[in-house]
């Protein structure tokens, strides 16, 4: 399915945070490229990089240390201390579904990251503004029933698909949907007042799933990037509640996906009835999905 080229206006807080040269490079690249903007990457001592529909473009100027710290400070809204916890986890939570990845020099205490200094890289991931049309897909998933796992390599469009499915299932199909939105990305733009949607923003996935089932009585729970033991345990515990889970995970292929013990365990427990593989060629907005029934995945596990 085609996602059309869109005019992208960077949010004000991003425009103000970027050095003017980087912003001008981004605008120039945006005009010249046919793709949709996906990422703005800043690296200390190196040229900035822009990703448009999976294709990479380099800016013209290198970014210095002071500039990098200034960008980091502005992206934290002028309050680095208020974002310390998420910075130690590698990201800054920002408005509008934008995820900002940060890394630098970690300070450890007891084996845990307690602070990050000398920021060396910042990756501003821009959400896809236009939702893909998933009307038929949503109908199929609801008819088939059970959970769905969406997988692709990083940057494949999983979060956009989750957002689109949340919109369809809670809107047109009128089902109660709880979104465990740990990074604040899935629910961005789901402002329509007719949606039957509950958003648990910032909750860790495992806890969010438990809380959603306990208090929000959802028919569907949507969450992004599952994979840890705690998340698998929470999903397994939800099995008996009758709630269908729609989740995403990184995986180049079904074979690679089920090499992960937690995913294989979830499959054996029958959590996911449907597997959705996303594929997108570099430099293109064209995104192809393949719906795989769990029986076909089961063969891979047994093999």
């Amino acid at each position: 399915m085609m996602i059309q080229k869109q005019t992208y206006n960077l949010p004000d807080f991003v425009k103000k945070a970027l050095p003017s040269s980087v912003f001008l490079d981004f605008e120039r690249t945006s005009r010249e490229s046919r793709g949709n903007p996906e990422e703005i990457r800043l690296r200390r001592g190196r040229k900035s990089e822009f990703l448009f529909s999976g294709k990479s473009f380099l800016g013209e100027r290198c970014i210095g240390r002071e500039e990098m710290q200034d960008v980091f400070y502005k992206l934290c809204g002028g309050s680095v201390y208020a974002h310390a916890e998420t910075v130690c986890a590698g990201y800054i939570r920002a408005e509008g579904g934008i995820r900002i990845g940060v890394c630098g020099r970690a300070v450890l205490s007891g084996g845990k990251v307690t602070a990050v200094h000398d920021i060396s890289s910042i990756n501003i991931r821009l959400p896809c503004k236009l939702l893909p049309s998933v009307k038929d897909l949503a109908d199929s998933l609801v008819d088939i029933g059970g959970g769905t796992l969406i997988f692709s390599p990083p940057g494949g469009g999983k979060t956009t698909f989750l957002r689109a499915l949340a919109y369809e299932i809670s809107g047109r199909l009128g089902r109660r949907v709880a979104i465990v939105d740990t990074n604040g990305e899935i629910s961005a733009g789901l402002d329509n007042e007719d949606l039957h949607i509950d958003i648990l923003e910032g909750y860790p996935r495992g806890e969010g799933i438990e809380i959603a089932i306990r208090v929000m009585n959802p028919e569907y729970i949507i969450c992004d990037e599952i994979g840890s033991r705690a998340e698998a345990n929470a999903i397994l515990a939800a099995r008996n509640s009758g709630v269908s889970i729609i989740a995403s995970a990184h995986g180049e292929s079904a074979e690679r996906l089920i090499e992960r013990e937690e995913i294989a365990e979830l499959h054996r427990a029958g959590i996911f009835e449907n597997y959705l593989s996303l594929e997108r060629k570099q430099g293109q907005s064209l995104c192809k999905y393949t719906l795989i029934n769990r029986k076909n995945i089961g063969g891979l596990i047994d093999a």
């Binding site: 710290q69 002028g78 680095v80």
Partner: peptide, 10 residues
């Protein structure tokens, strides 16, 4: 310096 450092230092 306000907002540029972590909690303890701030």
């Amino acid at each position: 310096g306000l907002g540029r450092c972590y909690r303890d230092e701030q």
